[in-house]
Design a protein around this nucleic acid. Structure first.
Lengths: 99, 99
DNA sequence: AATTTATATCGGTTTTTCCCGATATGCCGA
DNA sequence: TCGGCATATCGGGAAAAACCGATATAAATT
């Protein structure tokens, strides 16, 4: 992934918001409590909270995934997304080291 | 400055290139040796090296300045730009702390 | 097999970004 | 004060991004 693509992924308010929400699924998505948070949060919950259409959120999650900020797990008919903290650490390091 | 604006400033190949060149003015802009590097590199040098028009580079430097990545100094008819390392440190910190 | 539910993908409209040429501004030397 | 040089700003065309609604796919339910 190109550096510039990484930053593009972060250049959108909604996408930043999704990443922030995913920092604390329990607090931000209590509706999902009965299903657990092991693999993160499913697309539908994120979509409702963001208030944009399903297609848009799906696309945004895909952008974040291509940049490495989230990973997805398919469970039955649901796709769960959770943060990949490693990528954030690497990015932080990249900024101090090579930017 | 909004977080998203910071990342937008970094979402362009040429702007990232400018920041990289400014890390080592002596190595990347030997033509400017006789004028010194105290205040960084002047717009014209950056423009020639980038191979885009003067207006584009001027605009890009302005974007980087608004985001805090560079600062400018006017000396006679020249405007010199240099990196503001503090901003990079803050951004790196922001990513580990709040992103 | 048919229906429902969750997500992904596709095609299109609007907004934003990229990058240009032309022009304005500001500083300098003749 | 004029002409020239460096930079900034302005207006615009082309490309990309931000969304949307419609449709496709895939799994679960009947």
């Amino acid at each position: 992934m190109e550096q510039v693509e990484i930053f593009k992924a972060l250049s959108n308010k909604t996408r930043l918001q999704l990443l922030e929400w995913l920092k604390d699924p329990e607090a931000n998505f209590p509706e999902q409590k009965e299903y657990g948070y092991a693999h993160g949060v499913c697309v539908g919950q994120l979509q409702v909270k963001a208030g944009l259409t399903q297609s848009t959120i799906s696309e945004y999650l895909s952008v974040l995934q291509r940049a490495g900020f989230v990973e997805s797990t398919r469970v039955g008919q649901w796709t769960y997304y959770k943060r990949n903290e490693e990528t954030f650490r690497i990015l932080s390091q990249l900024i101090t080291d090579s930017l």
